[in-house]
Each structure stands twice: as C-alpha cells, then as structure tokens.
Amino acid sequence: MFDNPGFWLLFAAYTILWLVIGGYVFTLNRRQRDLEREVESLSQQLRRSTE
C-alpha cells in the first residue's frame, strides 16, 4: 500500500484539502475575533467620550 505511488498522491490531495479548508476557517475565526475586540474597544471609547 505504501509503496503504491497512487497512495501518496491520494494522501497529499486529501491532506491539502483539509489543511486549506481548516486554515481558511482558522483565519476567518481569527479575523472575526480581532474585529470583535476592536468593536469592543471602540464602543467603550465612544461611551467614555459621550459621558
């Protein structure tokens, strides 16, 4: 099985698929969290400045 070149191609294809999808979801998640933090700090600033 492991000396079948097809196996490594198959392995590479599915690994890349999941890495790319996982990586994309991860970056989306991180960007979302950063933005949320920014919203939080901005609305706090706004609250302070209007008081």
């Binding site: 079948n4 097809g6 196996f7 191609l9 198959l10 294809a13 599915y14």
Partner: peptide, 11 residues
C-alpha cells in the same frame, strides 16, 4: 487508475 482516482471526489 488505482486508488489515486479517489481524488476525483474532491477535485
């Protein structure tokens, strides 16, 4: 094509 043909299902 052997087992590499299974790439078809994601390609």
């Amino acid at each position: 094509q052997g087992i590499a043909q299974r790439i078809f299902y994601i390609h």
